[in-house]
Amino acid sequence: MISRVAESCFWLHRYVERADNVARLLRVNRSFVLDVRLPEGARWRPVVVVSGEEERLSSLLGDDALDEGEQVQEYLTWNENNPSSVYSSVKWARENARTIRETISIEMWENLNIFWHWMSGGKGRRLYKSDRDAFYLRVRDAAALFLGVSRQTVLHDEPFAFMQLGVMLERAGQTARIVDVKHYALAQNGASGASGAESSQVGETAVESAQAMALLRSCSAIEPFFKKTARTPAGRPVVAFLYSEPLFPRSIVHCLGQASSLMSEIRAEAGQETGVTSMALLHKLVDSVKHNANSGAIETNLHSELTRVIDATSEVCAAIHSDYFDPSFDSSPGPMTSQIQEQA
């Protein structure tokens, strides 16, 4: 298939998945900060940090804005200068869809179109003002509907594999980021003189247990967690579940494993000589993640392990780009490198 079309398939689904994740994270954090008394720097700042938007937000709105719930929500939901805001994600999903209308189904196009018009035409804005929670739920539902419709209405061949690959790699990165919020919040607790650092030695505080619940909720994992394990939802088991439970569809191990089989499907169609670099990187990442899930690395060194997963996922995406989206006779990317997509 044409590289550009493959790239648009990949990003179309990635953007929808991203809108879903950002909305989920914001909704959960709204409820979380109501439940728990936290120092200012641990309330909204972590959400900005894991979105990778710390620098841009503070340069646009000032550093204080990172601790203002309304400003953070506004920025991560609506800001057009933020390439991963919910608004931008839906917009770019639709732009990608528009250029590959021959490849996607009518149903997918109509669905996304309705989603976009709702976001951009005032209705979404009004709901955001009147019932914030309902707004984020609506975004989640719209994303779920789109992903479901695409599964039901297109051929499950190469374009579809690229769509799913976009979802899985985005989701793996997002889950890693969301889990990292907890780490960040804990570190902040410790730094601000609360008893966080110590108490994690002796047992979970109320704050931490609320954080653990929020973390599960951010990944739609409450029920799966309780079905899969009898343990109380404290920090360690929750992190372990989100990191390594192979049957949970948002866990890092699951998403990367799925990405790996999708890559094999793509190579079966495009040729075994293709995707050599990206496949090798992805295999390496999957192996290390499976190994670390059992080695205790996530208990002792969670932050650096999550950072490693996020970075390695980005490397896989970059390799997919040069393997599939911008092939040429030279190994180095030439002047034709596509610059339209925002890599995250």
Binding site: I2, R4, A270, G271, E273, T274, D326, P327, M336
Partner: peptide
């Protein structure tokens, strides 16, 4: 893209 004065299409199989 053009390589050695021939025109090529970028596809996922090269």
């Amino acid at each position: 893209f053009v390589h050695d004065d021939y025109v090529y299409l970028k596809t996922t199989h090269g």
